[in-house]
Amino acid sequence: MSNNQPFAILGNFTDVNVLFHAAEKTRDAGYQDFDIYTPYPVHGLDKAMGVKRTILPHISFWGGIVGLISAVLLMWWTGAVDYKLSIGGKPFFAVEFGMPVMFELTILLTALATFFALWGLCKLPRWYNELQHDAGFQRATDDQFVMAIFSTDQRFSTENTRKFLSEIGADDVRSVNSGAI
């Protein structure tokens, strides 16, 4: 437990327009390690926050390529190398009948890569979150927007960040300690 350093500083917003400008100001102030929790999807907020585009599509793409290659190898090696069976005079390996398997395995590995990469990128599964016992934070599932600036951010300092959050229009600015129950 680091002394005096809280886990994060939280502030609540009630107006989505104020939240938008607050997100832009936080981004422009140079904060990077901060997050906003909203009860519903707010379009364009990721841009206002300066969130970088996810690398998830690239993982999906390479998952698909791996699936395609493994399907070709599977069909070719089992049919034409390891255990040759002549069925209806068909060739041992051909793209024509290999295609359904290639298609399916491409899709399957794309889906699996996407699914597990998403879990990894979202740091799931996660059984405990430091913010979850904060009463104000729970409003983020109801009628308010919550901004959290984490102490891991380079620009973080308890005093200044508190002041900054109040300036950009947050109500009820408060610290949350890690492991505090």
Partner: peptide, 12 residues
């Protein structure tokens, strides 16, 4: 297009 082609190729 491939579905049409493959079924014809396979049944021959």
């Amino acid at each position: 297009a491939f579905s049409q082609y493959m079924l014809i190729w396979y049944s021959n």
